[in-house]
Write a protein that binds this DNA or RNA. Structure first.
Lengths: 109, 109
DNA sequence: TCCATATATCATGAATTATTGATATATGGA
DNA sequence: TCCATATATCAATAATTCATGATATATGGA
């Protein structure tokens, strides 16, 4: 995870459809969703969806895998962690007493 | 933190100068940095810096405070936490067994 | 009040990004 | 091989974003 990776990840998430897609994939968990299912769910035209999935797929936030005629997309939890870690990197170096409680509060109940 | 807040935060971080600024402010911690110091440190022209700081200041990721002739900027750790939380929200609902270890790994050593 | 410093705003042009209709490619099945 | 389905690519336009020179505003001090 270098700065360029982080930049393209953040830029990818700065667009509504793509943010929706990642959240959908996070919710879908390890079973993922096909490109078509994602597009249907969000009501996005086929070629627009394809272009936006391509942007996400160039980041480390999602992975995909062809399955017959479909392509299945998955949230890449390790990649998401790396992105958050990149953002917090300098925090640990400087003020871990602020950062660790911050992560503690994020935990699922 | 609604979706529009998250979108503008991610979009703000999808640009090199602004990502650099936030990381710098995270490193600077609670003492923050003035607009001029930030610009000097990153080698960015005054008006460009001002415009980019304005974009960041419209998000919940930084705060600022006038101090005499300068304006001092600070990382808003609570806002950063909310942004990460927004992204992970559906994860807790769906697959906390993936998400909690993810947050654990992020902790500062 | 006048000046210097710190930051913001305006107007413009360049660059990038987003959407879309049309079409192409890839896969599986008959 | 032919057809249907799933996704990708192309070309064009519209919309947005970016950086910048010039200028304006705000603050503090003499």
């Amino acid at each position: 995870m270098d700065k360029l990776d982080a930049l393209s990840s953040f830029a990818a998430l700065g667009q509504e459809t793509r943010l929706d897609v990642l959240r959908l994939l996070i919710k879908a968990g390890e079973q993922g969703m096909s490109a078509g299912e994602i597009g249907d769910h969000l009501g996005i035209k086929q070629n627009t969806m394809s272009a936006n999935l391509a942007v996400l797929a160039r980041t480390n936030l999602v992975t995909n895998k062809r399955e017959g005629r479909s392509i299945r997309y998955y949230a890449n939890f390790a990649g998401i962690r790396e992105l958050i870690g990149f953002l917090m990197e300098d925090c640990c170096g400087g003020t871990p007493e602020i950062c660790n409680p911050l992560l503690e509060q994020l935990k699922c109940p």
